[in-house]
Amino acid sequence: MRKVISFAVIIFCICTLPLLAKDESKIPNHVVSIELQNTSKQLKEEQSTMEPSEQTKELMESIDMKLDNEELIKMLNETTIKPSPIALGYRGNIFLGHWPLHYKSVESKVNWEFQLINVNEVNNYGGDKPVSVHYDQKEEKHVKGGLTVKAQKVDQIMKMIISEAEKKHSFPLTFHATYGKGTKLSQTYDVAVNKVGALKAYAPVLQEKGHVTFGEVYLELKGSKKNLVIKNVTKQEVGAFIPIENHVAFSYKSS
């Protein structure tokens, strides 16, 4: 009987582990959306996917490497290549540049209290009854995403990282989060008599760790055939922080 119970417990743990891991990525209770209240309305950066043309698809199939860089895909889409069918013996290599090609995520976690953006404080010393404090953004604050290491073509790398992160998380990610002055929430926190209540507001970010694959991209022409060739491939470990748009984490302390 004990063996049966133990086996059932093991099965239960195995089945619930993915659910527990998924719960960790949910927005916790002390984090609140201010999308409707934010006095600084943000224009959502549309992370539209650049679809490769038929010609670009053929070129991408000629290499055994994944290409995620939409700037590179866009350039290939705009390139017209029409080798002559009678160009026997013709050979040529066209250097297209050194590009970040692919980003692979290794670790992804949220820092809900990444940056302090506001403090609302109420002093109730000498008062005769409890009072309250609520969130009221005093000054406009900006939190910009970025890499934690030096790298070439940072904007292209950040786009690849955000695109990869959005596949795993439902958080609204942005390159630049703004918290407008005068943004308020109606939720209040009690400050007892002879106490000071401090409500701190933090901007949360998604922290990413992974590596970027770089390479020199060549267009190789052989007679009527055309192929992509990637040379001098290197990898670089990168870290990045990406603001979570229109969300604030609160911490309240009374002393």
Rank of each mutant, 00 (worst) to 15 (best):
V149W: 02
T183G: 09
E139Q: 08
V131G: 07
E164L: 03
L173F: 11
T183H: 07
H169T: 14
K181W: 02
K141G: 00
N123L: 08
P130W: 08
N118R: 00
K141L: 00
V154C: 03
Q115V: 06
S163T: 11
H134L: 05
L185R: 09
K168V: 10
M160H: 05
F175K: 15
L185M: 15
I157S: 08
K167D: 08
A151C: 05
D136F: 04
L147E: 05
I161K: 05
D155A: 13
S132I: 08
V119N: 05
Q156K: 13
K141A: 03
M158I: 10
D128Y: 14
N118S: 04
M160N: 05
T178L: 04
N123F: 07
H169F: 13
K150S: 11
V122L: 15
H134I: 03
V154N: 05
M158L: 15
V133K: 10
G145F: 02
S186L: 12
F171Q: 13
I157V: 12
V143E: 04
K181F: 06
V122C: 08
V131R: 12
K181Q: 15
L116D: 04
Q156P: 04
S186K: 15
K159V: 02
H176G: 06
N123Q: 05
V143N: 03
P172L: 07
V143A: 03
M160A: 09
S170R: 11
V143S: 01
K159A: 11
T174Q: 04
L116Q: 12
H169V: 13
Y125A: 07
G180N: 03
G126N: 11
I161A: 09
K129W: 08
I161E: 02
E121V: 14
E164A: 14
V122S: 09
Q152L: 10
Q152E: 15
Y189P: 07
A151T: 07
D136A: 06
N118K: 00
Q115I: 01
P172W: 11
N124G: 10
I162V: 14
F171L: 13
I162H: 06
N123A: 05
D155R: 10
E164H: 05
I162R: 15
L116A: 01
Q187K: 15
S132T: 14
E164C: 08
T178A: 09
M160P: 10
H142I: 11
V133W: 07
K153E: 13
Y179W: 08
N120T: 02
S170A: 13
K150A: 08
S132K: 14
K159M: 11
V119C: 04
A165Y: 01
Q137N: 06
E139V: 01
A177G: 06
S163F: 04
E164T: 13
K184S: 07
P130Y: 10
K150D: 11
L173R: 10
T178F: 03
F171I: 02
E139D: 12
Q115K: 13
Y125R: 13
